[in-house]
Amino acid sequence: MQFHFDDSTPLYQQIAAQLEEMIFTGGFDEGSQIPSTTQLSAELHINPATVLKGMNMLVDKGLVEKRRGRGMFVATGAQEKIMQARKESFYNDYVKRLVVEAHKLGINKEHLLELIERGENDGNITD
C-alpha cells in the first residue's frame, strides 16, 4: 500500500480504497481474512484508529465483515458489489456526460457508437 500524505484525501479513505481495490482484483478472496488493524498500522506506521476507520468504511459497505474474536473477513459477494458500484459510477461519471456532450455536438446514437468502436480499435481493446 502506498499513501499520498500531501493528498487532500484522508488516509482512512485511502486505506479503504486500497483494500477495496485488493478485494476487487482478487488480492483478498471472498471469505479470506484481511490483516488486522494492528498488523496494518504497524506495517504502515499509521495510527490504528485511522486504519480502523478505513476498515469500518468497508464494513459499512458490506464488503468486509467482523467476526468477534477472529478478525475481519472479506464478505461473500464483495467483488460483485464492488463491480456493480463501479459500473454505476462509470455510468454517472462518464456515460451521462458523454451523451450530453454528444447531443450538444449533434452526434446521433449511431455516430456515437461508431466513435466508441473507433476508440476500442485505437485502444487495442480485446474481449
Rank of each mutant, 00 (worst) to 15 (best):
T38Y: 12
L11G: 01
E114H: 13
Q18P: 12
K81I: 00
R118S: 12
E101H: 06
M72E: 02
L40H: 08
G106M: 15
A16S: 09
L113Y: 09
S8W: 07
G123P: 02
I116D: 05
H45L: 13
N92H: 14
M72I: 00
Q84S: 13
V64T: 01
E110C: 12
M72Y: 12
K87S: 15
K61S: 14
Q14R: 06
G62L: 05
G106F: 07
E80H: 13
M22A: 15
G62I: 05
V64S: 01
Y91Q: 08
E110K: 14
R97N: 08
H111D: 10
L19Y: 00
I15P: 05
I107R: 10
R67N: 08
R70D: 01
S41A: 11
R97P: 11
L105V: 01
D93T: 09
Q33K: 15
T37R: 08
I46Y: 06
H111V: 10
V100C: 00
S8P: 15
R118P: 00
M55L: 11
G119H: 05
A42N: 07
Q18S: 15
E88T: 09
M72G: 02
R86S: 07
N47Q: 14
Q13P: 02
T76M: 13
D29G: 14
I125G: 10
L112W: 01
L52N: 15
Q39M: 13
T76K: 14
M55E: 07
A78N: 06
L115H: 03
V51M: 01
N56S: 06
A49R: 15
S32T: 04
L63W: 09
V59Q: 12
V74T: 01
F73Y: 11
S8A: 11
F24Y: 11
P10F: 04
T126I: 02
I82K: 08
K61L: 15
I125D: 05
V100Q: 07
T76V: 02
Q13N: 03
A42T: 04
E80D: 06
D29K: 15
H111F: 06
R70W: 02
G31A: 04
F3G: 06
N124H: 09
Q84C: 13
